[in-house]
């Protein structure tokens, strides 16, 4: 475990906590895409199938449980919580994410490290995570303005991906058995998706204006 990977996990955890805090404190999920949250819950559920079979470390096991529990909690809040669900922008969150799920699953059947249930679902979760943010970015563009907590949520998510890429570069040069090409390539694609959001976020911060995404 290197510092880049640990920092990446922490920023990932912070991004989820920001979302939970925003929903809990404001009892509102305006500006948050339920579809992105559902995709993330699916990512964690399909990636951590090995939760009870392969024990890597206490840290890994605890973090996996935290990620699964928090992502399901967010989805539950947005779907079931009587107050929160009223503020969900159903007609803005129209990204057809079922096609994305299907495409990732087909890709995982074709491109995986080993053709076993666990490996196919792992590859599926890696591809799905790369595109899971799309409904959220589309919703932000649709709603035009980005409230600062949601903006920070996406910012921390981007930071987590960026730190993971640095972690892979570091591991590539320091370890002889480092082959996670599926995660690396998919991670690069995912970070690229954030790049344009970062650009507009930086512009809004620099010009001290409200973050506006071009429709």
């Amino acid at each position: 475990m290197n510092i880049f990977r640990f920092a990446g996990d922490m920023t990932h955890l912070i991004s989820i906590l920001i979302l939970l805090l925003k929903i809990y404190a404001t009892k509102s999920c305006a500006g948050i895409s339920l579809k992105t949250q559902e995709l993330y819950a699916l990512v964690f559920l399909t990636r951590y199938l090995d939760l009870f079979t392969d024990y890597v470390s206490l840290y890994n096991t605890v973090m996996k449980i935290v990620f699964i529990a928090s992502s399901l909690a967010i989805v539950w809040c947005m779907r079931r919580h009587p107050l929160v669900r009223r503020s969900y922008d159903k007609d803005l969150d129209t990204f057809r994410h079922q096609y994305v799920v299907l495409a990732c699953f087909v890709l995982a059947l074709l491109l995986n490290e080993k053709f076993t249930i666990q490996e196919v679902f792992w590859a599926f979760s890696i591809y799905l995570e790369a595109v899971a943010i799309l409904p959220q970015l589309v919703l932000l563009q649709r709603s035009g303005n980005v409230d600062n907590l949601t903006g920070q949520y996406v910012l921390f998510l981007g930071a987590y991906r960026g730190l993971y890429i640095i972690n892979w570069i570091y591991r590539y040069f320091t370890e002889d058995h480092f082959t996670r090409w599926i995660a690396c390539v998919s991670g690069l694609v995912q970070t690229g998706l954030y790049a344009d959001f970062f650009y507009y976020y930086y512009l809004s911060w620099k010009t001290n204006t409200k973050l506006k995404l071009p429709a």
Binding site: R5, D9, H12, V56, N60, E175, H177, R180, A183
Partner: peptide
């Protein structure tokens, strides 16, 4: 040392 293919990241 992680052997090839062991998923030791999140």
């Amino acid at each position: 040392k992680t052997t090839k293919g062991v998923k030791d990241e999140l």
